[in-house]
Design a protein around this nucleic acid. Sequence first.
DNA 1: CGCGTTGTTGAAATTCCTCAAGAATAGTGG
DNA 2: CCACTATTCTTGAGGAATTTCAACAACGCG
Lengths: 258, 258
Amino acid sequence: MSDRDPFILKLETFAALDEGDRDLLRDRCRRIVAMRAKEEIVQEGADPQVVHLVLSGFACRYKILADGSRQIVAFLLPGDFCDLHVFILDEHDHNIATLTDCRLALLSREDVTALCGRPRVARALWWSTLVDQAILREWLLNIGRRSAEERVAHLLCELLERLRNVGLVSADNSFKLPVTQGELADTLGLTVVHVNRMIRNLRDMDLIAVSGRQIMVPDVEGLKRFCGFRANYLHLERDRSRPDDALAESEAFAMRVD
Amino acid sequence: MSDRDPFILKLETFAALDEGDRDLLRDRCRRIVAMRAKEEIVQEGADPQVVHLVLSGFACRYKILADGSRQIVAFLLPGDFCDLHVFILDEHDHNIATLTDCRLALLSREDVTALCGRPRVARALWWSTLVDQAILREWLLNIGRRSAEERVAHLLCELLERLRNVGLVSADNSFKLPVTQGELADTLGLTVVHVNRMIRNLRDMDLIAVSGRQIMVPDVEGLKRFCGFRANYLHLERDRSRPDDALAESEAFAMRVD
DNA sequence: CGCGTTGTTGAAATTCCTCAAGAATAGTGG
DNA sequence: CCACTATTCTTGAGGAATTTCAACAACGCG
C-alpha cells in the first residue's frame, strides 16, 4: 500500500498524520476481505466485534420497512468506516451492504485500541464519525426540504467532493458512480421513475453529462448554485487554528478501547 | 439537584454510574443559563468553546435554505447535549435554538475533560453521540419512506419513549409537547396544513388524544403498530452482556480533551 | 380588550407516484 | 461470438398525496 491509500487520504483531511501514524494505519489495515456487489456486510440486530473500513468500491447503510421499501441512509466510499460504533452500541440498528464489488479492511477491537493510542489518529476517527453525522443532517435537509431535481443535484455535488477528497475524481470533474437509479431513488426518498426524469432534466440543462455510469460535471459552480450546495458540512478543511503539534503533545482525545 | 436530574437519568440508561460519577456530573453542570423560547443557542459558522446541555425545556437543531424553508434535524430534550462535537469540528454546520423556555448547563472544555476522565461517563457521552446519530438515520427513513400520517405517529412514538426515559411521561402515557404544528412540519418535511390534517386523522382514529399541548396515547402498542415503530434505534436498553465493572477496571473509552 | 401567533378548513394546483410497456445494457452459458 | 435472460433505463398516461393559497377561528399574552 502507498501513501495514496484512500483511507489515509481521508483521515489526513483532518489530522496531519506523521509517518508513524501512517505506518500504524497500514499495519492495522492488513486484514483485507473482498466482497461481491450486493452482499450484506452487517445485518440489523447483529453484534459483531469487527470494524469494517472500505478500501475500494461503494457500500451503503440502509433500513427497510415492513412493506419492503428501503431507505439508504449513507454511502460508504473508499476511506469510510462502516461501523466504528460497534464497541459502544449494543446492537446494529441498520444494515450495511456492498453496492459494488468491494475490498474491505477488517479491524479487531485490539486494532482500534492501537489506533486510538495515537492522539492524531484517535482525533481523526472521532472527526470521521462526526462528519458522518453532519452528512446525515444534510441529507435530512435534502429530503425534507429540497425539490426532487435539487436533491439529485445536491447528492451529486456531495459525491463529487467526497470522491475528490480521496482521489477518485479526474481533472475534468468526472467520476464513476457505480450505483443504479433504483439505489439513488432509495437514497433520495423518491421513485426510480422520478429519479430518471430528474437526471434527464439535469442533463437537458447541461448541468451534468452522463455516459454509462460515468458522471461529468461541466460547470461545478453552476451545479452547486442550482441546488444550493455548500461543502462546509463535510468539514474537509482542516482547522489551521488548532495546531496538530500542540494536540499531539497534550495527547488530546486519546480514546482507548478495552 | 437530585438523582432525578434528567441528564443523569439519561446517561444512566447506558452506563451504571456510581455516586462519584454522579457527583462529578452535578458538580460540572453547575453553570446554568436560562433562555426564553425561540432564542438562538448556537449559530451556523460559529466556533464557540462551550458545550450546552439541556436541563429543562425543548430545543432543536435546524438548517435553513436560501428560500427560507427550514428543516429541524433534531429535538433536544432534557438530558441531551447540544454540541458535544464542538471540540473536534472546526465550525458549526447548523443552528441550535430553543423551542420553549429552557435551562441549559454550560460546560467548558475543562469540564468535558474532567467528565471524560471517568470511563463510565466517557462511555456514556460517546453513547449519547451515537444515539443521536441513530436517531438521524431513523428520521431519514421516516421522511424518505413513510407516509405523512405514519411520520407524525412515528415522531410521537419516539418522543414518548425519549421523554419517558427522562421521567417526563405520566402514568397514563401523556406528555407535554410544547411545539407548534409549524415546527412539527419543519421536522417532518411537510407543510403546516398537512401536519394539521394528519394529526386530525390520528385523533379520529383514536390513536392519540390532544388537549392543548398535552398529548395522550390511549393505546401505545396500537400507535406503534400503526407506524411500525421499533424502539431499538434509541438503544435505551443497557447492554447487560458487557459488565460495567470490567469496563471501569479497564478504563475503557477514556476520552481526554486537552 | 386588542393583537399577534397558532390552529383549522376548503378548493385548486402541483409534485410525485403507480402502473405499464418497450428499449438498452450487462451478464451467462453454449 | 452469439443467443438468451435478467437487470436497468426510459417514456407515457392517469391517479394520489401533498402543497399552495386563502380565509377565518381560537388561543395566549401584554
